[in-house]
């Protein structure tokens, strides 16, 4: 999908910057508590399960299943016009976290709960890469 200029880039505040640094390497990584093993996303300083501040950026399989979605028909920014209608699913990743990303090359009518998807990377600028999904299998 063609992303025209003006397409919003992540602000990369705080720990989000680390998430996107791995995206730039085409690696999807989520925080994982090194005390209790719980995966988390969004990035947070503390584990909501055990209260530990210790974590690593652990590699995700990049695979998941669709939990829900929207298909945006009316673009809210001029930059989205060329892409609309576009579909943005919530995906339950294999690691147990849920992630939002636009799904590419998938007609809205083919969307199903439980549909397997996998992550791909979109190099939006020389500095910034964001994850997207595509249908798997």
């Amino acid at each position: 999908m063609k992303k025209t200029s003006g397409w919003p880039l992540p602000a990369r505040m705080g720990l989000a910057a680390e998430f996107y640094q791995f995206c730039k390497l085409h690696e999807l990584r989520f925080q994982r508590c090194t005390d209790c093993g719980t995966w988390r996303h969004l990035p947070r300083p503390i584990c909501g399960s055990c209260g530990s501040f210790n974590y690593q950026w652990a590699r995700s399989s990049g695979k998941g299943k669709v939990y829900s979605w929207i298909t945006v028909a009316q673009p809210m920014l001029p930059a989205f016009s060329a892409a609309a209608p576009y579909t943005v699913p919530l995906v339950d990743m294999d690691e147990g976290v849920r992630m939002v990303a636009l799904i590419e090359d998938t007609p809205p009518e083919s969307m199903r709960i439980g549909m397997p998807v996998e992550v791909v990377f979109d190099d939006m600028t020389p500095e910034i890469t964001v994850p997207r999904f595509r249908r798997a299998g």
């Binding site: 397409w7 919003p8 880039l9 992540p10 602000a11 990369r12 505040m13 705080g14 989000a16 969004l42 939990y67 829900s68 979605w69 929207i70 945006v72 809210m76 920014l77 989205f80 892409a83 576009y86 943005v88 919530l90 939002v100 990303a101 636009l102 709960i113 939006m124 964001v130 997207r132």
Partner: peptide
Amino acid sequence: ATIADFYMPQGAMVPAHFYGWMATRYVQE
């Protein structure tokens, strides 16, 4: 911050989008 870092770059930015995720799940279930 959630929207700016994780939703808007994916094209989701207003309440019609966020609550749409809930509504689609509801419709499908």
